[in-house]
Amino acid sequence: MGSWRNHVRARLQQRDLKEKLPFLGVFTSLSRLEDRFEIRSQILDDFQSKSLEHGRIEDVGTRLLHLQLRESEHLEKKLSQTVSDLTTVLNLKEAERHYWQSRMSQYRQEALTLARGSNTLKATLSEFEFTIECQSKELAALRVEQKALKEALAQARTEKERLLQRWMEEKMEEADRLNKYNDSQERWQHLAKKLKKQLRREIGKECVPIATSSSSDATGTCSPVIGRINTTDVHQGHPDHNPVSAAAKD
């Protein structure tokens, strides 16, 4: 893309060197000579018209002197106008220069203000970078601590599950022991009821002949027999069904 552009630019520069640059001085000199010729033609026409009005014919030297004088006057006016124009332009340029100097001083002040603000922002940025670095370190430490806490929490949950499982097993064993104890107690109570019934039947059989003799003696002899059977036959005749020994065995 840039090769053909460079080629065209080089060809245009060569054309300017060959066709335009050699004639720059010629065109400038021609324009000056044309201006001078117009001035002299105008001065000569004025001079001839004035000579005809006065009816005088002057020689060539006088004409040339008048022509040079008028040309000098015209050039002086033109130079004066040029000087005036240049003075005006110079004043404008001076005013513009003062304006741009004021703008430059204003821009300098703004640049100084911006430089101070930039330095402040750099210091603030450095503080923020230091704060971010510290917070990054704290965040890394907190992440490590969080990881350790997660591991401890997982271990605690595992320990909790293990303890809960162990507690459930112990409670199940305790429930089994309690059920066995309740079963033994029920069996013992059932057997005790049977023994009581049997004892009552036996006591009733023993008290029948005594009751035939006299009612007063029957009441006096039956009560100690009942007490003796309750204390001796139950504990001595059936030692295997003791509730305390049964509970201890279970």
Rank of each mutant, 00 (worst) to 15 (best):
Arg36Tyr: 04
Glu38Lys: 01
Ser51Phe: 01
His54Asp: 02
His54Phe: 12
Gly55Ala: 02
Ile57Trp: 03
Ile57Leu: 11
Gly61Asn: 08
Gly61Val: 07
Arg63Ala: 10
Gln68Asn: 04
Arg70Ser: 14
Glu71Arg: 01
Ser72Asp: 10
Leu75Asn: 05
Leu75Ile: 01
Leu75Gln: 07
Glu76Gly: 09
Lys78Leu: 09
Ser80Thr: 14
Thr82Leu: 15
Ser84Lys: 14
Asp85Ser: 13
Thr87Lys: 11
Lys93Arg: 07
Glu94Lys: 01
Tyr99His: 12
Tyr99Ile: 07
Arg103Met: 04
Arg103Gln: 10
Met104Asn: 05
Met104His: 12
Tyr107Ile: 02
Gln109Ile: 08
Glu110Asp: 08
Leu114Met: 04
Asn119Ser: 09
Thr120Lys: 07
Thr124Phe: 15
Ser126Asn: 09
Ser136His: 14
Lys137Thr: 10
Lys137Ser: 08
Leu139Ala: 10
Leu139Asp: 03
Ala140Pro: 00
Leu142His: 11
Gln146Tyr: 07
Ala148Phe: 05
Ala148Gly: 00
Lys150Ile: 10
Lys150His: 11
Ala152Asp: 14
Leu153Trp: 02
Leu153Arg: 11
Leu153Thr: 15
Ala154Arg: 07
Ala154Met: 09
Ala154Lys: 08
Gln155Cys: 05
Ala156Arg: 14
Lys160Ser: 06
Glu161Ile: 02
Glu161Lys: 06
Arg162Cys: 03
Leu163Thr: 05
Leu163Phe: 04
Leu164Met: 05
Gln165Lys: 15
Trp167Tyr: 09
Met168Tyr: 04
Lys171Trp: 07
Glu173Phe: 09
Glu174His: 07
Ala175Ile: 04
Lys180Gln: 02
